[in-house]
Design a protein around this nucleic acid. Sequence first.
DNA 1: TATTGTTATACTCTATAACTATA
DNA 2: TATAGTTATAGAGTATAACAATA
Lengths: 158, 158
Amino acid sequence: MNAETPATTPPADERLDLGKLADAVGYVLRRAQLAVFADFNRRFAALDLKPTQFTVLHVIGANPDRKQSEVAAALGIQATNFVAMLTELEKRGLCQRTRLDADRRSYAVTLTPQGEALVAKGDRLLAEQEKAIEHILGSDGRRKLVELAAQLSQTTQW
Amino acid sequence: MNAETPATTPPADERLDLGKLADAVGYVLRRAQLAVFADFNRRFAALDLKPTQFTVLHVIGANPDRKQSEVAAALGIQATNFVAMLTELEKRGLCQRTRLDADRRSYAVTLTPQGEALVAKGDRLLAEQEKAIEHILGSDGRRKLVELAAQLSQTTQW
DNA sequence: TATTGTTATACTCTATAACTATA
DNA sequence: TATAGTTATAGAGTATAACAATA
């Protein structure tokens, strides 16, 4: 009798109204980021790399022999929390710390050959994710999203 | 002699290269979300509301007398983690649980008058943040960002 | 004295298992 | 048997304080 309420749908189960949140940048950004990270984790599960771990290795690869503190700062990771993180990646044979002669308090960080290989694989998986996102948003949409998000994240003056 | 290296900048301190991360949706989305949340926390500090707490109250206000589990599900919050959260907001006199006669396992959740007042204040602060974002991205840019992020977050098929 | 890397630690967020009362 | 809400708990992620080695 009522075609709009199929038997599979319990009564009084209409979607909730998100109100102004539906148009709030912070809210939609958070939900989108969670969705993208969930997809990332599925894709990178075989490499056993979480988003942050991949970004660390990727940046070390793109900036060999930079100081530990510089890598951490570039990614917005606190120096204190970066220690255990780097140590684990080093234990897995993916990167290496080397004392600097110029300043013997500091370490230069580089990728090992295994690290290079894993980053190369990760880069391919990342490219596949970007392709998947292009499929959803269109090529222009994806580019525009990156542009707008980067613009926001680089803003220091609100 | 070298105008490109001012005295305030230590030598060998060039910005690190983010490589492909600079064009990766997941990475820029995460950085943008953190920036927006940091700004949110500054704006909402006087109300003592964190982003999630505000979204909960806002959705309850927009959907009075819905079940606790429905509110949690709408926001992607696990039922088990939602308990303490709601209890705290209830202790602060901002919302209220009421047993449902129809199903006495469930609670209907509503805002108290204080809760309504606080959400009203929060809504104004939120509008101010959106204005600030418009100032950064432009009106079209902000709208486009919301559209693209929402589209991504609503995608279930990757 | 200041800085790099470190340890210890606490606090928040999120996830899982198991319970209770109702259905 | 299944579901709504709950408790207990464990694991991440993130933050601060204090230290050793070096500058």
